[in-house]
Amino acid sequence: MKNITIGQYYPTDSVIHRLDPRVKLFGTIVFLVSLFLTDHYLGYAVITVCLAAVLKLSKVPFKMLLKGLRGILILLLFSVVFNIFLVPGRELVHIWFLSITAEGIRRAIFLGIRLVYLVIGTSLMTLTTTPTDLADGLEKALRPLNKLHIPVHDITMMMSIALRFIPILMEETDKIMMAQKARGADFETGGLLKRAKALIPLFVPLFVSAIRRAIDLANAMETRCYQGGEGRTKMHPLCYQKRDKRTYCIYAGYLIAIFGINRILVAFQILPFLFA
């Protein structure tokens, strides 16, 4: 439970923390696009350097990110192993009915890098942005969608409430778990069915409490005259600073570099040689 880093905030003061949330959201998208556009080692080297630089600037300890990776370990293993064995191509090793191909290994390595960087990149955004800022940024960035009658404010409000409640519900789970353990409940031993049954004394109170909290929150919001996004003003309106504009320029440079490397490698037919 404590290994989930997506949605967790790491409080410290860094250049990255101070950036406008919209800049970070956009940056994450740019980063994801670059990850999936790249298909060669040189490009990944550039991405790695950039990611390492951002990580260093954010002052988030690497250990925090590693914790987040633990959550996708199984998914990672599965996809890497499948790719190694199932991609057709030039055969390197043949064991019984399985064969390992050069293409398979390459594909597996790239997929592994993509998955790991994807988690690191998105975790980095949530670790450096408070949930409130994130929702604010999302709301402002998606405002044009209002024209299509998509209730942007309501959606972002729901999102920020959900994010806000993750730590509360986790604490609650911990508490209820301890209370039931004190009554002799056993969550750790037994077969699948027994363990699933053991969760009832945990889940029922948890749901009851989540619903109770939701009702309380709704009442609290209504007593403060909340009525959605219409005409609502902000205490801290988002406003681009000089550093935000500079960061956008860096994004442009980054994208050009990634595209450029891609084009050059293709144009000069270097790609095939690199993996020959």
Binding site: K175, I176, M178, A179, Q180, A182, R183, G184, A185, D186, I200, P201, V204, P205, V208, S209
Partner: peptide, 27 residues
Amino acid sequence: GLVFQYPEYQLFESDVFSDVCFGPKNL
């Protein structure tokens, strides 16, 4: 025996009697 703060939040059974039985049943 440990009774937590606001212990009523740990109740989960469909009736009072079965809820009290939960502890001894685990024994």
